[in-house]
Design a protein around this nucleic acid. Sequence first.
RNA 1: GGCCGCGUAGCUCAACUGGAUAGAGUACUUGACUACGAAUCAAGCGGUUGAAGGUUCGAAUCCUUCCGCGGUCACCA
Length: 584
Amino acid sequence: MTLEQHISQVLKERYDLEVSVELQETRKEFDGDHTLVVFPFLRAAKGKPEEVASTIGQDLKDRGAIKEFNVVKGFLNMVMDQNVFTDEFKAFCESNNLGLPAAGSKGKYIVEYSSPNTNKPLHLGHIRNNLLGSSVAKILETNGVDVTKVQIINDRGIHICKSMLAWQEHGNGETPESTGLKGDHLVGKYYVKFDQVYKAEIKTLIDGGMDEEQAKKQAPSLVKAQEMLLKWEQGDSATISLWETMNGWVYEGFNTTYEKLGVSFDKNYYESQTYVLGKDDVLKGLEQGIFYQKEDGSVWIDLEGEGLDHKLVLRKDGTSVYMTQDIGTAIQRFKDFEAKGMTYVVGNEQDYHFKVLFIILKKLGYEWANSLHHLSYGMVDLPSGKMKSREGTVVDADDLIDSMVADAGAISKELGKIEGMDEAEQQALFHTLGLGALKYFILKVDPKKRMLFNPAESIDFTGNTGPFIQYTYARIQSLQRKGPEGLSFDWNTLATNSEELTLMKAILAYPSTVAQAAEALSPAVLANYTYDLVKKYNGFYQNNSILNAESDERIAFRLLLSKKVGEVIASSMNCLGIQVPNRM
RNA sequence: GGCCGCGUAGCUCAACUGGAUAGAGUACUUGACUACGAAUCAAGCGGUUGAAGGUUCGAAUCCUUCCGCGGUCACCA
């Protein structure tokens, strides 16, 4: 019987109370393992906090559920027999899977993330998106879910035509090969070029006496881009060919970045193929009266009942809008994968869009619509404010990754601990450390919150960072290499000190922390847990000799404890997409 | 302006979802490397949790108002 169950029984028998019991860990300044807050029971118990707590404590002790207890105000601190923890830890070690659920034991789930436009390279905002999506997928997998990772690539539309047009008119036939530029950067260069030309044209028109509104609509570049979009939709072969070529460059560039980031997808959806999806579903919904049609032919949904307004789902010319596509794409995905739920990793600027989308899908009667989730994350701000591509204040993904790797290299060389590693090993290590620092920096922050990135201050490698955790792992591996083999100890006679006990408890919390992170879809939960574990381990390491402990039994136990800490670190860092080095 | 979200040490972030004296890192000051790796450990400094009310045994957390910041209100995506 668990301690919670014991407490439930005591409450029932003594006070006729039927409540769910929630325990918390006893704070370190008090004596005990678990703490029960008794204030909620005072009304039924009709007593003072101290008396009630003491009564419950004594009952629990009499039943043998706890070893000792003490009462501070309304807090009942309970001390467990140490064997409870060593027994649990023994089972944990013997299970050999860190207490985690079996792979694929919890059904199928879809995670959508990244969703880039093919007109410019990825930037820091995409990095947060990619790391979150990729990590959430890994966390779910680690928690026993069968995850399918998908992205939708926004490969069509007026914005794509803009870079195509600019390249056509000003590109002089440049290619990634001829310029040595990464394909996505080359295309991005022409997206910027378009904007420059467009703005100049507007200025000329305004100077010629036109008002701004008109000028923005009539600037020749925009008109030409619109013509190009029309040609694309008509399937004009020259336009399609240019589109394919330039998108091909972009995909090659994206793949390089994805590879460096260590993210991947099980299936790509392309907007050029899905943008017609959803129209049929909307028309069907129109027949059922879920949508209504205005006189001009446009189709809408009335969401005033939900406290929202009216939303357009088909234009008057019958073409789709963003919402229509998302309706169709969602339906398509559940046909493709028969998942029980899906999460969209998309910035919080689209909160309203997803609110509406989910309501519509529910109204259309899809059962799975109740298990849709928008993982809405905050923007990454710079000290100067929001990143704006047109103002050139974006932090480019490739540049950032490269500079992190370079920083890792500089620091490693300065510390001089990597002698004997060949060049390739060193480069791999710098990559592991640089990306570890970057990923941890981003993932340790609660996804919902916006975060600040200051390019002037490089990301730390000391303190609450990825490399700090990686360093602890590397030290543990060093111990394992140096430790004597063949030593053993007897669990039954094992007496642990307080630091060892603290560590065991922290290790044992791993599976429930993974479950919590999966529930909250939050890598930050795991990052904070791991940091806490590592700090505890380092404190233990500092104060307790492992290889020179007082007995062979002690050495064996501490090596096992260290090994398990290492395994938990490796597993949780894997959930964050962070690799761990054997030396650094 | 309507709606949504956010304000915690100088800076970057926590706080088990309403619990005990609000914790870490960084920066700054100091101590510890001929014990297993000092990218480490230990100590100090740093707070009216944006402000004011309210709810109750108890509030950073819930409610109201105000201030500040951001997002969103397209037949764009």
